[in-house]
Design a protein around this nucleic acid. Structure first.
Length: 270
DNA sequence: CCGCCGCCCTGCTTGC
DNA sequence: TGCAAGCAGGGCGGCG
C-alpha cells in the first residue's frame, strides 16, 4: 500500500533514473489504466516528449513533461512504478510501459488494476481536491487544531481523508495514533489541544522516519529499483494483531473503523 | 458542504 | 486435500 513515504521513495528513485530522458514510445496493454483527455491517444501523445522533473503530491507520483503536461500516477494499493534496463523483463501485470530513447524503460504494473496513469494538460487542476502536505511548513499544529475543530468524525477517518491531509493512509494513521496515545475512534472534536499537538508531532515524525527508511513493504510495495523498504520491521501496531505493544506489553487489537482494519493498543491509547 | 455506500479487482485466507 | 466463498482496500461517483 504505497502511502506518502513509499511514493516519496519511488519519486526519489525516478528522479535519479529518468529526469532528462526523452520518450521514444509509450505502450498501453490495458486501456482503462491509461487515462487521457477525450480523443487523445496515450501512445501518440507521449512520443517525443521528455521528463523535466518528478515530484510527489499526496500519494501521487507526478512526471512533469517538457510540453507542460504531466503524467500523474496513482498507485492505489498494489501499483508499482519500476525503471527497467534495455533487456530487463517487465514485471508481471505491467499495464503501461514507456520506452526512452536511450533504451531504458518505465513500467507501471498493478495486480488489482486499481491504479491509474493519467495524462493531464498544462494548468489542469488535477490536485484541487487534495489537502495540505503533512511534511510542508503550512501543516502547523494550529492549522491542524482548526481542521479538527467541530468535527464528529473519528480522528482516524479524518487522517485518511485526502481532502484534508494528503498522503496519509492506513499504516501511518494507525502508527501516528499509537505514537500519540490516542484512540482511533475518538471523535475529532473531543481531542484536547494537547492531544492534537501530540498527534501533529507524531504524524510528522512517523512520516519522516518512514521516508528515512524508504517506506514499508507490507504487501508488495517496492521502489523504482525494485527494492523493498525497511519500515515494516519497526511498525508498532499496523498488522500486529495479538502481538505485544512495544510500550506497555499489552496485546495489540484489530478493530474495524469505516470499513478499514485498525490496529491499536487498548492500554496506551486513550 | 458533508458523509455514507457500493463498486472496482484479484490473491490470499478461511471454512467445510 | 481440494474447492468455493469471503475478504481486503484507496479513491471516486452517486445519493441523501
Amino acid at each position: 500500500m504505497p502511502e506518502l513515504p513509499e511514493v516519496e521513495t519511488i519519486v526519489r528513485g525516478l528522479r535519479r533514473a529518468i529526469v532528462g530522458k526523452t520518450i521514444a514510445r509509450a505502450s498501453v496493454y490495458l486501456k482503462k489504466i491509461a487515462v487521457t483527455p477525450r480523443g487523445v491517444s496515450f501512445e501518440e501523445a507521449l512520443a517525443g516528449d521528455a521528463v523535466l522533473s518528478v515530484i510527489r503530491r499526496g500519494k501521487y507520483a507526478v512526471l512533469r513533461l517538457a510540453s507542460g503536461r504531466a503524467l500523474v500516477v496513482g498507485l492505489r494499493m498494489t501499483g508499482r512504478l519500476v525503471v527497467l534496463g534495455r533487456r530487463q523483463e517487465k514485471p508481471a501485470y505491467t499495464h503501461v510501459e514507456i520506452l526512452f530513447t536511450d533504451g531504458k524503460r518505465l513500467a507501471f504494473a498493478d495486480v488489482r488494476q486499481f491504479g491509474r496513469v493519467r495524462l493531464v494538460q498544462p494548468g489542469e487542476p488535477w490536485d484541487a481536491a487534495l489537502g495540505v502536505e503533512p511534511l510542508s511548513k503550512s501543516f502547523t499544529p494550529e492549522a491542524f487544531i482548526g481542521m479538527l475543530s467541530g468535527r464528529t468524525t473519528p480522528v482516524k477517518v479524518f487522517l485518511l481523508d485526502q481532502r484534508r491531509i494528503a498522503g496519509v493512509g492506513n499504516i501511518y494513521a494507525c502508527e501516528a495514533l499509537w505514537e500519540a496515545g490516542i484512540r482511533p475512534g475518538t471523535p475529532a472534536k473531543r481531542l484536547t489541544g494537547a492531544a492534537v499537538r501530540r498527534l501533529h508531532r507524531a504524524l510528522v515524525e512517523v512520516l519522516r522516519r518512514a521516508v528515512g527508511m524508504r517506506g514499508s513493504s507490507i504487501d508488495d510495495y517496492v521502489d523504482a529499483r525494485g527494492l523493498k523498504g525497511g519500515f515494516q520491521n519497526v511498525l508498532s501496531v499496523y498488522g500486529r494483531t495479538g502481538k505485544n505493544c512495544r510500550r506497555c506489553g499489552d496485546s495489540i487489537v484489530r478493530t474495524v473503523i469505516a470499513q478499514r482494519g485498525t490496529w491499536w493498543c487498548r492500554t496506551c491509547q486513550k
